[in-house]
Each structure stands twice: as structure tokens, then as C-alpha cells.
Simulated assay, not measured.
Amino acid sequence: MQPLVLLLAFILLPGAEAGEIIGGQEARPHSHPYMAFLQVESPQGLSSCGGFLVREDFVMTAGHCWGSTINVTLGAHNIEKQERTQQQITVLRAIRHPRYNNKTALNDIMLLQLRNRIRRNQFVRPVALPNAGEKPRPGALCTVAGWGWISLHGWSDKLQEVQLRVQSDRKCTRRFPSYCSRTQICVGDPRQKKAVFKGDSGDPLVCNNVAQGIVSYGDKENGTAPDVFTRIASYLSWIKRIMRRFKQQNQTETPPSSPCD
């Protein structure tokens, strides 16, 4: 597995500008049992993303992590090793939000239906999703975990974590012209050297054991906060319909328009 992981560390999807964990620390092994490592094959080549288990047969990630073939590793701490806790499963179907916009990153969310249900245990289990209309308040302290880079010049094969505070929407509105407060969350204090950046898009923003956001994009040059996360609560009706009905291989599902389309 090691040569593939090394390759994935340096070949990124177009638009995969967020995900590096800067200013964090190595997570306690298996303290985030919902975390998923994604190996993605697309026309641009091989890349990697983060994701998280939301049901025994579904992983959630960013829409820009789409690929023609996606392999999921769950229960990992060190992605360079074949740990006994790992479960490796191929993706049966990648269901990206139909109104995902690769220019503005609006609707940057995707569900991955796994070919087989996971074996739920202490190392692999889903994370809770928010209630409809829920959004963490500015100042809330949340956690992001992932296998992305730990500085502007190096990456980690072991799961890292960082605590970030939710910011007011105006801090992202000023910085990112396409920011939409109804479907996105502004995260990360610009006064601290803590942020997400290149290499691991799709990681979850977890606040009080609930996945509230998905790493979407940020400052691709310097890795400084704040960053933009997809707001999961804005897509709950679509998520529930997909996970309830999307069982037949050729079935399709079209959600209502996003208020920021």
C-alpha cells in the first residue's frame, strides 16, 4: 500500500484546495472511528480525499472528490500500513449533488454507496448527522481530522486532528465572493496558525460528536484561515432520500434547488 499512498499525496484533484491540517497533532489511534480515507481515480489521475461514515453502507465527502473509481479504507490510523482494524471497500456508486458547481464550489457534497456494508465495531462506526436547520454558532469549538499535509512542505501518514472555531459568516463573505451562508460554514480563526488546506478535502467538521460540515475550499496559496465548509444540515432532505431510496443501480434522484444556486 505504501507506494500508492505516496503517489496519492502529491497528485490532487482539480479544485481540491482544502484539507491539509496545519497546527494540529496526531490523533489518538481510532479515536475518530467514522473517518474514511478515499483513493480516487479520475481522468486527471490518482488522488486522495477524506470522508466519513454516516451509515453502514454510506460514506459522505466533498463533491469535488468525485472519480470514476473510488476505494474506501475505514478503521485506519496509519494509511501506509495494513492494520488489522482496517476495512477496505469499493464504492458501488458515487452520488454527487446534481447542482454541484466546480467553479463556485456550491453544493460541494457527495454520498458514496459502499459495495458492501461495513462491519460495525469499536474501530469503524458512523458519526451522527445534525438536525434540520442546525448550524454551529460563531465561537463554537469543533474538530477536523484527516491524513492531509501538516505543513506547507510535508504530509502525514497518520491521522491528524485540529480544533477550529466557527467564525461569523461575514469573515468568509469578505474573503470568498461565492460564499453562501445558507449552505456553507466559515471555520478557522485567522489569528491562529490552524487551518485546513491541500490534500484531504472531504474531511468532517465535528462539533459535540455531530458532523456539521465538510471541508470544501480555502486559501490555496498560504493555508491561512478561515476556510469554507459545506453545511450538512442544508442538505438533510436530499441525504435522507438518497440513503433511503438509492438502492437500485440505475435509480436517480434530483433534489430541490439550493437557495444559493
Rank of each mutant, 00 (worst) to 15 (best):
N101Y: 03
P255D: 02
V91I: 11
Q167D: 10
L112R: 11
A16Q: 12
S31T: 02
V144E: 00
R93D: 13
F37L: 14
L6P: 13
W238D: 14
I109N: 01
N107K: 07
A36Q: 10
A233N: 07
T252Q: 07
P136Q: 13
Q122K: 10
G199N: 10
A140T: 12
K81Y: 11
Q192F: 03
P14G: 09
N102C: 09
K247Y: 04
D261W: 03
Q212C: 01
G23K: 01
E83L: 15
M243N: 06
R174S: 14
Q87S: 07
V228H: 13
N101T: 00
S181D: 06
E80F: 13
I242P: 02
I185S: 01
A145V: 15
L141G: 02
S42E: 02
E26F: 13
G75S: 13
I242R: 04
A9T: 13
P204L: 03
P43R: 12
L114Q: 04
P177G: 09
D203Q: 06
V59P: 02
M35E: 15
V5D: 15
Q113G: 01
W147L: 15
G19K: 00
A105R: 13
A27I: 00
N222W: 07
L106R: 14
G223E: 08
S258P: 01
A27D: 00
T73G: 06
R84T: 12
G188V: 03
C186P: 00
C142R: 01
R120Q: 11
K158G: 00
V162R: 00
I11A: 15
R175Y: 01
K81M: 15
S68F: 01
L152W: 00
P43C: 10
R245D: 12
N102S: 12
T183A: 04
I118E: 00
A76L: 14
I79D: 15
L74R: 06
Q192A: 05
F246C: 11
V196A: 13
Q122E: 11
K220Q: 15
G146P: 08
P255F: 00
A76S: 14
P98A: 00
S48V: 06
N78Y: 02
Y235M: 06
Q2I: 13
H64G: 11
N209P: 01
D189F: 01
Y217P: 04
R96P: 01
I22R: 10
Q248P: 02
K171V: 14
K198G: 01
Q88D: 12
L38T: 13
C65Y: 04
R231P: 05
A140S: 15
V5M: 14
T173A: 09
D203L: 00
G154V: 08
G19D: 00
R231V: 04
A9C: 15
K198S: 06
P98W: 02
I79G: 14
Q25D: 12
S237P: 15
